[in-house]
Design a protein around this nucleic acid. Structure first.
Lengths: 225, 225
DNA sequence: CGCCTATTTGAAAACCGTCAAAGTATGTGG
DNA sequence: CCACATACTTTGACGGTTTTCAAATAGGCG
């Protein structure tokens, strides 16, 4: 691994508390994995021997419905970890992971990582923080999916993504619909309307938020009265 | 706290690794809280100074939709912890918690608990395990809500609850609909049909699973071809 | 017995998914 | 550099699922 890669690990949320020596310890445990676009990292139900940290690229984590429709649970980029749930539970992966662009990961064997955790309690605490954040986000999306209408769900999704990634979102309408639990056609219809109302602009595969405040109004839904 | 209560703590998933002395340390930090039915423990967005462990009773954790509909995120019983996400993130509670029956909890001040965690790395690991399990469950429900039809969602929900609580479920149709992200009327229509098909029996406020295998078939959905 | 909550049923309508067909960028290979 | 393949976007019509609104019945507790 080169210096840049090691820096990504050092600055990642989970390992940011480690000093130079500890990072070196960690580096001795990892293997690098290079991915072409759309390569599968692991499938749901595979035995979970490894967990991963993204160095570069974009990775999606998905589950299939019984009808074969893909649901995107989340996206991960540089410095974020994947497959952690399986590692800490000693069960198969609960979801699949796949690269969306050319990507590079580091992989760490589950047993090595657990040993590392026991030696480094600060990393445990960081891990708890990360898991808490993911649980919070997951529960917020649960509420949206269980109770909000499609347009509101899409608005909330787009806002949430923009907080994380900025006002230009590198997603297709299909990506959005797979995240919002709707269909491509419906996502297109909603976004077309937003485009007419100058709430967004868009080019193929990208969505640019033009009027965040209007989007927030939609996200909040119609007044209760 | 009496011996029985202390035993509940000792046997709870999070503290099961502690020895006698460590449990005593813990007990010195806790306060007991008694709840009448339907008493609110904390509201979503309240500052999160405490986290809780259920000694006895049944507690629901909920979020509201923008239209004021209640969505039940989960139920907790004896030995389970509530409010953990907020504690580890230093943010307000992400959801509300309310007793469903007469209940008793112990509460631990956030700062005390974090200190305790630093002294007891095994508890950190247990916590990671519990959070992972909750994340796994939350993501599974995300998939269901995003992609499955109402009857399948209800079937999966009932099965999931029965794995946790046994074949007699102490929930009203409204509880189920608030969990499955549908309406009371729809839940009633689906369950009535199940009753006719002898898949369940029911008395006011309770549902008894009579034919788990049929329920599993419904949960899997129609055959793909 | 009376009240409150849970359960039930019906009819109409809204919302969204499905299916089908076509237009439009992007990149690749010849 | 153009032609073609591919993936993304768009539009329309139809229908099914589920919600909504309304009203009625029934079980349990004081």
């Amino acid at each position: 691994m080169n210096k840049d890669d090691i820096n990504i690990l050092k600055q990642s949320p989970i390992f940011s508390a480690l000093n130079e020596n500890e990072v070196q310890d960690l580096v001795s445990l990892v293997k690098e994995r290079r991915l072409v676009p759309d390569e599968v990292i692991f499938w749901e139900e595979d035995p979970s021997d490894w967990f991963y940290i993204v160095l570069k690229g974009k990775v999606k984590v998905t589950k299939m419905t019984s009808a074969g429709k893909e649901i995107i649970l989340s996206f991960f980029g540089s410095g974020e970890m994947i497959g952690e749930v399986a590692v800490f539970e000693n069960k198969p992966y609960p979801a699949s992971a796949q690269s969306m662009t050319e990507s590079r990961l580091v992989s760490i064997r589950k047993s090595d990582f657990l040993k590392f955790l026991l030696k480094h309690p600060e990393v445990s605490l960081k891990t708890i923080g990360i898991l808490s954040g993911r649980l919070r986000e997951s529960q917020s999306r649960l509420r949206d999916l269980a109770g909000e209408k499609v347009e509101q769900r899409l608005a909330r999704l787009v806002l949430m993504l923009s907080y994380k990634l900025g006002s230009t979102l590198p997603f297709t309408r299909q990506d959005l619909s797979d995240m919002a639990g709707t269909t491509t056609e419906t996502a297109i219809r909603v976004l077309s309307q937003w485009k007419e109302r100058s709430i967004i602009r868009s080019v193929r595969g990208k969505i640019i938020i033009a009027d965040e405040s209007k989007l927030k109004l939609i996200a909040e839904g119609p007044p209760l009265v």
